[in-house]
Amino acid sequence: MKQFYGTSLSSPLMLGTALYPSPAILADAFVKSGASVATVSVRREAAGDAAGDAFFQLIRKLGVHILPNTAGCHTASEAITTAQMARELFETDWIKLEVIGHADSLQPDPFQLVDAARTLCAEGFKVFPYMTEDLILADRLLDAGCDVLMPWGAPIGTGLGLVNLYGLRALRAAYPDVPMVIDAGLGVPSQAAQALEIGFDAILLNTAVAKAGNPAVMAEAFAKACEAGYLGRYADPMEPRDMAAPSTPVLGKAFLE
């Protein structure tokens, strides 16, 4: 598995920490799935002081890598301030950079994203940019100093899976060595398996697990799907073909009628 800014992860599953019925269920989901990274929204929970501390302590106790995010930011400057706050709060220079361009669809704003990424990379942040699957955007983000890319599967919270499969394959093929995480839009485990099968290195989920009837079991299902997808990729799958080819030769088979 590729490294993320020099860090090897024990699992390709990254989980968000919002929307769970309770912190106890959240913790259970991490334990059952072996997820390696927890994303935490800084903006809303922390309000820049100790008020959110109890929740952060619970997240810290999970013993996984913490990836703070800038969820809810709509401009580069907001995202930069939030990232700086996150660095102090969590003592990490990892930041999932999210700059929302459209309040309704939560589509990322590619222009503000590149601006923010450039500033943050220059300040020594290790930026995980939440992006669309656009190739030119990928190019600009890598130029800005990002070593990891996080294309969406579908808009946040929709559970639609890998909507633009062609675009995601093209992105993967264009930058085979860049660690890439499918972030947002996954709803069911088979979609995670597909993401790993087509060569993505990790997936990041929140709603699909947190809003499942049984979040812990769903997190486990996603972890297993990631493993299946990863092994499927590693094992070098056959190419699809039009011609049927029986796996048991017909030659020599007894005539029954």
């Binding site: 929970e45 922390a46 309000a47 008020a51 959110g52 109890a54 929740f55």
Partner: peptide
């Protein structure tokens, strides 16, 4: 419903 003990803002 926000994970924070803030009671004023």
């Amino acid at each position: 419903q926000i994970e924070s003990s803030d009671r004023t803002r």
